[in-house]
Design a protein around this nucleic acid. Structure first.
Lengths: 159, 159
DNA sequence: AATTTGGTTCTGTAAATTATGAACTAAGGG
DNA sequence: CCCTTAGTTCATAATTTACAGAACCAAATT
């Protein structure tokens, strides 16, 4: 693993990796993990090996290992191998983006239960504050009803 | 400000404040800020003063001050005052939840631009990887098209 | 004019996060 | 059997975050 070659990136590509990286950081990823996402989005090689990633981003092997395993676990990347080689070739698993969207929405909808609990504990269930919470609950109900329909519409429209 | 009375909370209320707090932490808020959100959701007083919040959550004045100002800035809470009093009475600004939802979605859609940039830099615009990115772009376009309609539908259904 | 109220701002620091480097392992090749 | 490859794991170093505490300030009160 000595001296494998990093991918050559021009300045625009580097800047875009950072931009996409920051986006993913803001969505809860740690920096190195987010940069790997950025790299895989920008890279002209759709698949990259452990070393290529590590060298291109100047990440230590341990950071690379942890980051890749985390991305594998959360289903954001996947890999193939080629017969006779031990190397893994990592690539984005973009199908998972829509799954991720769905998960994000349903996590949001799960907040509904906390709100319901809050309502149950309220002394005054008719005050303005309570009514506001109830309206929020209704909004979340609305979303959980409409989201499947929306995604279905997308699937139908795809072709 | 010596010895103002904290709000009395039972165990269920305390637990729920933590639960709602953790939800907000997962959405990027820092712990103290998230607990304040929890408290305001659970509290039987729909409005609470600086001290009440600080004492009830055992937060220092600086933490309380920073947290409240952050929540004010991001539009998640608001306050009223009463004539003759300098105290501010803080409450949730729940109208902002749907605004927040909209913002979250549009931030997601803004990722579309990064993807477009990525496509522009690609050497091979027809490979599978590029096609996957294009499909994601189309999905985000679909969302940005459908979201306003969806929210409109909600507004109409409200009464 | 001194004190109290209702905060804000400024360090300092404990704790959590994030990444590094070195040691280790397991599989395959010579 | 030793070496290389392709990583993983562990201890620890370096940041970063989040909060407390003290000093401070402006408006109202005594």
């Amino acid at each position: 693993m000595i001296d494998s070659k990093p991918m050559l990136l021009n300045d625009k590509q580097k800047a875009l990796i950072e931009k996409i990286g920051i986006y993913h950081e803001n969505n809860g990823m740690q920096p190195a993990v987010a940069r790997i996402m950025g790299l895989l989005f920008v890279s002209d090689q759709p698949e990259m090996t452990f070393d290529e990633i590590s060298e291109t981003l100047n990440l230590s092997k341990s950071a690379t290992s942890n980051a890749l395993n985390l991305l594998l676990q959360t289903g954001q990347i996947e890999y193939t191998t080629f017969s006779g080689e031990r190397k893994r070739y990592f690539r984005l698993k973009l199908s998972n983006w829509r799954d991720g969207f769905t998960k994000k929405i349903s996590q949001m909808i799960s907040f509904r239960e906390s709100l319901q609990e809050a309502m149950a504990l309220k002394a005054d269930k008719d005050c303005q504050a309570s009514q506001n919470i109830n309206e929020l609950i209704e909004f979340l109900d609305f979303l959980s009803q409409e989201m499947p329909t929306l995604l279905e519409k997308w699937e139908n429209r795809k072709h």
